[in-house]
């Protein structure tokens, strides 16, 4: 069994300052890296003979409008089926420069996950083969999961918002 500690040490040895903020909330190894190193890290973990973290579980993003220069966080969950070891990698991006390289050459499944993240948050995955909206209509002109946009449909008539602090 791999331990979080040993994998973390190995990654730090390999990437030194490019990775940081190691943590293991609820036993899941979590660390942060930059957008320059995210693909090499994923590739390293995937091709590592022991770890074999070769299953991309998920890609998503989080919007933190109140933390300057770290407004967007792209979160990767990867999984080693052989070692049964999971890892979470975060990349913080600024609102002004929402670009991050795509993981599609490594994982075919990244395609739609990245499209979804683009659709909902507007994170641009450079090199993605087909970065279009996936869930929402093509005509939509904003990225709805950002915190500043309202949830509700503005046209409904049968609800009263004033009630009970809603």
């Amino acid at each position: 069994m791999l331990t979080n500690e040993e994998v973390a040490q190995d990654i730090i040895r390999k990437y030194e300052n490019a990775v940081g903020e190691f943590d293991d909330p609820f036993g899941l190894l979590t660390f942060t890296t930059s957008r320059e190193t995210i693909i090499p890290v994923l590739e390293y973990l995937k091709d590592h003979p022991v770890y074999q973290i070769s299953f991309l579980t998920d890609i998503t993003a989080i919007h933190y409008p109140d933390s300057p220069d770290r407004e967007y966080c792209v979160v990767y969950h990867a999984h080693s089926l052989v070692q049964n070891f999971r890892v979470r990698i975060k990349v913080y991006l600024t609102a002004a420069d929402l670009h991050i390289p795509t993981a599609t050459p490594l994982y075919a499944s990244a395609n739609w996950m990245e499209r979804e993240t683009f659709d909902l948050f507007g994170v641009i995955f450079d090199g993605h083969p087909d970065l279009r909206r996936i869930l929402n209509m093509e005509e939509m002109d904003y990225h709805p999961m950002r915190k500043e946009y309202p949830l509700e449909d503005s046209t409904r008539q049968d609800k009263i918002d004033a009630l009970f602090g809603r």
Partner: peptide, 17 residues
């Protein structure tokens, strides 16, 4: 009929529209 719990930007609030 009315959108139900999905009072969201993406859901039509009732097909009678």
């Amino acid at each position: 009929s009315s959108g139900g719990i999905f009072d969201t930007y993406s859901v039509l609030q009732g097909i009678d529209r």
